[in-house]
Amino acid sequence: MTLATVPAQHAPAGSRAALSARGLSKSFGNFQAVNDVDIDVHHGRIHALIGPNGAGKSTVFNLLTKFLQPTAGKIMLGETDITRMDPAHIARLGVARSFQISATFGDMSLVDNVCVALQRPNGLAVQFWRPLGSLSRLRPRAMELLGRVGLADMAARRAADLSYGRKRALEIATTLALDPKVLLLDEPLAGMGQEDVETMAGLIADVARDCALLMVEHNIKVVADIGHDITVLQRGEILTQGSYAEVSADPRVREAYMGAEDDD
C-alpha cells in the first residue's frame, strides 16, 4: 500500500511542490543509505520526515540541502533543477536549513548572528572597506526577527551564552532572515525541555504559513500536532507517506518503531 504523496483531502488542487525529489538515492561505497525516495514539500505545509534510528533521515535531509550529493535522482526547487548545485547556491535561491547540533556564531551577539544572514541579500557582505556602522540599517529587521522568536530582549548577548533552547530559536531567526521559500529543519526539538518544545512547535507552525517546511523529528507527539504530511523512512526507503492518521494506522510503521526499540 503506497499512499499518494499528499492525501487527496489535503492536496492543494494543481499546486506544484515547492521542493520535490524523485528517485533520490545515495550510496556510500557498497552501503545503500537512501534508495529511491520521492518527497514533495508544499508551500504552507509542514512535512515531517520520521523513522527509526539509522533509517536514513539525516542522509535524505543532507541530500535535499545539497550538503551531500545524490548518487541518483532529481531534486527540483519549483521549476528549477537543483540536483547539481552546491549548498551555498541553493541557499541563495531560498532553501534555508538548520543543523542538528545548533549552529550559531558563538562569539557574536544575537543581533549580529542575524545580521550575518541579512548581509548577503543586501549586498553588504563583500564590502571590506566600510565600517560596521553600515550594517545599522539591517538592525531593525534583525530585531524584528529576534522578536518573532522571543529573543529581542537579549539581542546584545553573546550567542554562546544562550541556553540550548534559545540557541535553537536564534537559529530559526537566522534562517528566517533569508526569507526562505523552503525551510528544512534537522531535529529542531531534539534535547529540549517540555516548555521549550511547546514554544518551538508553535513557532514552527507559525513560520510554515509563509513557506514550505520539512523537518526531521523524533518527537511523535509534535509531529502529530503540527505535521501535515508525514514520510516514514526505514532502511533508506520510504515505508509509507500520508497524513498522521493514515501513517499511524499502518501496522508496518508500528512494527518498524517497535523493532527499533528492541534494537536499542
Binding site: A88, H89, A91, S98, F99, A103, F105, G106, V116, T174
Partner: peptide, 17 residues
C-alpha cells in the same frame, strides 16, 4: 564579520548562502 562567521561555523555560513 562574514569572515568571522566562516571561522566560527563554516557549515552554517554555507547554509546562509
Amino acid at each position: 564579520m562574514i569572515l568571522q562567521a566562516v571561522r566560527e561555523n563554516e557549515q552554517r555560513a554555507i547554509s546562509l548562502g
